[in-house]
């Protein structure tokens, strides 16, 4: 028996909007620790990892580990029927091949049940070892989304370089080139407006902007984003989900042959 009750149902709505463009079908894994998902995009260039810890749910009952295969587009269609202030409960009986999403309005005067058939998805799970990163940039998520959007109108790959000057985003295309430098800035009114750069050593990597732009669909989840770079690893773009967990995107770099 699975019954997960999330008072801040809007988080789940935003999570689906954040991942459904990158991944079509995926398994949601439920265990005592939480509700998670790991999936690659169809071209195996990017990977998304979601974790919603059990403590973040008002009620979290998961009698035994369960993996539920779903089409994320269909889940998104159902969750769009939930109000942004609704309480969302995910329910599944042991052995049943359906999952139910229940939406309760804040004053309990409207209760909706959306039931969906589960799918058999044999997804490949990748082991992601903890790593030390040569540079970690923390910046306003809206800022990062704006940079990725602006640069993709000029070119389709971005070189992200971190030096002691700051973090530079560069691209080039048929119409010309663009360079955006963000410097560390801690003197801001609100901490979420700060740009903080931790650099162990300078690093520069090249990535496809199309994937970074799909990662920024997670912007509504968090005021800030962290970008972790190492010359021999995929970039990790992380949006924390307040008090619950995170959505992490991993993107393999492009190299000069």
């Amino acid at each position: 028996m699975l019954e997960l009750r999330l008072v801040q149902g809007s988080l789940l709505k935003k999570v689906l909007e954040a991942i459904k463009e990158l991944v079509t079908d995926a398994n949601f894994d439920c265990s005592a620790t939480g509700f998670s998902l790991q999936a690659m995009d169809s071209s195996h260039v990017a990977l998304v990892a979601l974790l919603l810890r059990s403590e973040g749910f008002e009620h979290y009952r998961c009698d035994r580990n369960l993996s539920m295969g779903m089409n994320l587009g269909n889940v998104s269609k159902m969750l769009r029927c939930a109000g942004s202030d609704d309480i969302i409960t995910i329910k599944a009986d042991d052995g049943s091949d359906t999952v139910t999403f229940m939406f309760e309005s804040p004053n309990q005067d409207k209760i909706a049940d959306f039931e969906m058939k589960l799918m058999d998805i044999d997804s490949e799970h990748l082991g992601i070892p903890d790593a030390e990163y040569q540079a970690i940039v923390r910046m306003p998520s809206g800022e990062f989304a704006r940079i990725c959007k602006d640069l993709s109108s000029i070119g389709d790959t971005v070189i992200i370089s971190v030096t002691k000057e700051g973090v530079k985003f560069s691209t080039a295309g048929d119409i010309g080139t663009a360079n955006i430098v963000c410097r560390q800035n801690k003197t801001v009114d609100k901490p979420e407006e700060a740009t903080v750069i931790e650099m162990q050593e300078p690093v520069s990597l090249t990535f496809a902007l199309r994937y970074l732009n799909s990662f920024t669909k997670a912007t509504p989840l968090s005021e800030t984003v962290s970008i972790s770079l190492s010359s021999d690893l995929p970039v990790v773009v992380e949006y924390k989900i307040a008090d619950m967990g995170y959505v992490r995107y991993y993107l393999a770099p492009k190299i000069e042959e």
Binding site: H44, P234, Y250, A252, E257
Partner: peptide, 14 residues
Amino acid sequence: TEVQLSIKRFYRST
């Protein structure tokens, strides 16, 4: 030319 690497080059299947 630029070559896009696969994520599977960095993380092994479990």
